[in-house]
């Protein structure tokens, strides 16, 4: 990390605590606790938002405003029987939920919640997040293949096709932001460093959604597809594939998939905030407040989209990606590069 920029030196947890062997479990504890609370609240929020959009009440009877509803769900899922189906591929079947769960937890550490604090400062942060996101596909395919179930396999195959297709516009749109960062932030720090991306937006007083509106839209659509959220939730399309790749998973194994889905939502929203919405940048309120306010606003939009649009057919999904998103994102990248080299 370059020290040439005076007002920018995020402290990692290792620097705060001093001892890396103490910092690691602390970071893990912070992440796990925060993510558990986050998932519990997000599931509750999802049910409430869906209810409100449908003019219902949503959970109201379990705890005040139904806030303890997901806690009850969790208690139940913990105590449910774990069914292991016959003739499965045992290593794949048992590893898949962990494979889905671990990367998303790891990715959370990279996000700069404020100007001064980040759990892990990495010059290749953006690539690392995308790499961990890519592992979700492997987990889903392991689950689908290992389950010895036709619906699970079909869901997994769909998921692989979808995620690989949508990763291209996702990364291309993020790449055009990296170009802008490198052009604006000087050559002192890597344009792939998430703290640096957020800092450039704060320093130059411009959010990249204004410079890269097309990239922002493409990123958001691809992120919906990456997290397997409606209207792109065909890997677990209930009306066709029972429950898709997690058809054969019960109890805690299923809840790990659930956990990773909602954490994935948080990760893509946080990444969108860092890339396009200025990260922790904002007036009056402290950095973390702005960061999470923006992230949860984006998550609300994702829920809103989910409960508005019907599921796409698979060919429509692929056509949309290959004929609209990928050409547009490539054009956007070329135009950005051209503009930077001219200016």
């Amino acid at each position: 990390m370059s020290q040439s920029i005076t007002d920018y030196a995020p402290q990692t947890i290792t620097e705060l605590v001093g001892n890396p062997w103490l910092a690691m479990p602390m970071a893990a504890g912070i992440i796990m606790g925060a993510l558990t609370v986050n998932v519990l609240m997000l599931v509750w929020a999802e049910r409430k938002v869906s209810a409100w959009i449908q003019r219902r009440m949503g959970p109201t009877e379990v705890g005040p405003y139904g806030l303890l509803q997901t806690l009850a769900d969790m208690l139940k899922l913990i105590s449910k029987q774990l069914i292991t189906p016959a003739n499965i591929d045992k290593p794949l079947y048992h590893l898949a939920p962990l494979m889905a769960f671990a990367p998303v937890v790891g990715a959370v550490a990279l996000f700069p919640v404020s100007r001064d604090y980040v759990l892990l400062d990495n010059d290749l942060g953006l690539l690392f997040v995308f790499a961990l996101g890519g592992m979700a596909v492997i987990a889903i395919f392991m689950a689908g293949w290992g389950s010895n179930n036709k619906y699970a396999l079909l869901g997994a195959v769909r998921s692989v096709a979808q995620n690989i297709s949508y990763e291209i516009p996702l990364i291309l749109s993020a790449l055009s932001v990296v170009l802008v960062v490198n052009a604006m932030g000087g050559s002192t720090a890597s344009g792939l460093n998430l703290s640096h991306i957020a800092w450039v937006q704060s320093h130059e007083h411009v959010w990249f959604i204004l410079l890269q509106p097309l990239a922002a839209i493409i990123y958001f659509i691809s992120a919906l597809a990456e997290t397997n959220r409606a209207p792109f939730d065909i890997p677990e399309a209930e009306s066709e594939l029972v429950a898709g790749f997690h058809t054969e998973y019960s109890g805690m194994r299923f809840s790990l998939f659930f956990f990773s889905e909602y954490t994935n939502m948080l990760i893509v929203s946080m990444l969108a905030v860092v890339l396009f919405l200025g990260g922790w940048d904002g007036p009056l309120l402290p950095g973390p407040a702005w960061f999470f306010l923006k992230s949860y606003a984006l998550i609300f939009v994702m829920m809103w989209v989910r409960w508005t649009f019907p599921r796409l057919r698979f060919d429509q999904l692929m056509t949309f990606c290959w004929t609209v998103l990928i050409p547009l994102s490539i054009l956007n990248l070329l135009a950005t590069a051209l503009a930077i080299s001219v200016l």
């Binding site: 209810a51 959009i53 219902r56 809103w304 989209v305 409960w307 508005t308 649009f309």
Partner: peptide, 26 residues
């Protein structure tokens, strides 16, 4: 059409939360 669709659901959401017009019979 996507934006207008989202407008419809937002109207319903605001109607339920701000105007307390849920149709649910408790």
């Amino acid at each position: 059409s996507l934006v207008s669709g989202m407008g419809v659901t937002l109207k319903e959401l605001v109607g339920t939360t701000a105007q307390h017009k849920a149709v649910t019979l408790q």
